[in-house]
Design a protein around this nucleic acid. Sequence first.
DNA 1: GCCAACGTTGGC
DNA 2: GCCAACGTTGGC
Length: 153
Amino acid sequence: MPNYWLMKSEPTTYSIFDLEKAPQKTTCWEGVRNYQARNMLRDDIKKGDLVFFYHSNTKPIGIFGTAEVVRGGYPDHFQFDPQSKYHDPKAIQDNPRWYMVDIKHKKTFSQPITLEALKHIPGLENMKVIQKGQRLSVQPVTAKEWDIILKIA
DNA sequence: GCCAACGTTGGC
DNA sequence: GCCAACGTTGGC
């Protein structure tokens, strides 16, 4: 059984439409610089897991589609790249601090499921993304939540 | 653009 | 190891 996740992105930085157009419809999910999210990327997110692609800081906010993890956690090489905005001068080569995964586009919903809509769907009351102050850019999603949302999409 | 939430840093 | 200051996220 795959596990389910939700990943946030600001569409001005990287949108689901960018992912659709990417070579092999695949991209690496770099730049996560939060330890809780890092732990999930490094330890928990495996090849074959499924992901909701969420647009934040935009209009409308919400889940725009799905993607599949095609490569599980591996070191985010941008931490070692002084040119990158994700460079981390404290990161050590043989003990990487930050991790990323590769995801491949699966589906763009015909209509995004907005944050506002998510708040009113029965069964999603405990979903992390609708909780106030929930800032993690990578979040676990339960199988039940996944099913409810896919049925509506 | 504001600001609440909350993670991180660093002085002590 | 506490906690104030500071920075960032992200909804509104």
